[in-house]
């Protein structure tokens, strides 16, 4: 019998701890498949964040470092600068990357660090139980904004892909989601392209993946997918935000 589908060799056999319907697992799969298909897995070094994906080091079948909250881009800088020929990536949530680690990601992008960041934006602090993130939408409820986020209290949500795209060192930024097969395929192409550009030493590459958190959004997985489409995509538009080689002036 022909095998038509199997778990990627880029993932270990460990059982994922993510909640039912959480998108983290699909995103892991796409990163793992990309590393395998590009022949990068045995040289790959990943950096995981503090957040629900803190245990990603148990799942990616390559060497991994677990970073302090928000510091993954600095850790990856130390790794990549000393291992310039190997694929290096960070996998970070929105609290990790857009809040506590804002300085680290901005400066890694500014320097044009040649690693790839997979940014999982679920508009909430998942791991700590659903507090407001910088990406939480206006009106969206969280445990620290129980009547919904307001502009007066917390400002407008941050669009990281657009913001980092203003930096010359960031050569590729794309926003994707994994809500259906078509989008999963697009996300996979984006992730692969980012790794290809990294290995061609073009500069910093950034893939923002809109993701669900059914548990803290208080929805079924199916409803969460619909909520993402109806609310997140209008504010966080999908597509290539930037694809431009660095110009040295």
């Amino acid at each position: 019998m022909a095998i038509v589908y199997q778990k990627s060799a880029g993932l270990t056999d460990a059982e994922l701890h993510y909640c039912p319907g959480c998108n983290h697992g699909i995103i892991h799969k796409l990163v793992a498949e990309s590393l395998v298909e590009l022949g990068l897995l045995d040289g790959a070094i990943g950096v995981c964040p503090v957040g629900c994906s803190v245990f990603a080091y148990n799942y990616f079948n390559c060497d991994m470092l677990e970073a302090a909250h928000g510091r993954a881009p600095a850790v990856a800088t130390g790794v990549k600068r000393t291992h310039p020929d190997q694929a290096v990536f960070t996998y970070q949530g929105d609290g990790d990357l857009a809040s506590i680690g804002a300085a680290e990601i901005v400066h890694a992008a500014m320097r044009g660090e040649k690693f790839t960041t997979i940014f999982v934006n679920n508009a909430i602090y998942g791991m700590t139980g659903g507090q407001m993130a910088p990406t939480t939408l206006i009106g969206q409820r969280a445990t620290t904004c129980q009547s919904g986020r307001t502009v007066e209290q917390a400002g407008m949500p941050i669009r990281m892909a657009e913001m980092l795209s203003t930096l010359d060192g960031c050569v590729y930024a794309e926003r994707v989601c994994v809500t259906d097969v078509a989008n999963v395929n697009k996300a996979k192409r984006a992730i692969k392209k980012a790794f290809e550009k990294q290995m061609a030493r073009e500069g910093f590459t950034f893939i923002e993946v809109l993701s669900t958190c059914p548990t803290n959004w208080g929805m079924t997985p199916i409803k969460a997918i619909q909520w993402l489409k109806d609310n997140m995509i209008p504010y966080y538009p999908l597509g290539v935000i930037k694809d431009k080689a660095m110009e040295v002036k």
């Binding site: 470092l65 600095a74 850790v75 800088t77 130390g78 000393t82």
Partner: peptide, 15 residues
């Protein structure tokens, strides 16, 4: 903060 975390990355990778 970034400097010490770069040290963590490079040191963790064996440098």
């Amino acid at each position: 903060i970034a400097a010490i975390n770069m040290v963590y990355g490079a040191g963790g990778a064996g440098m």
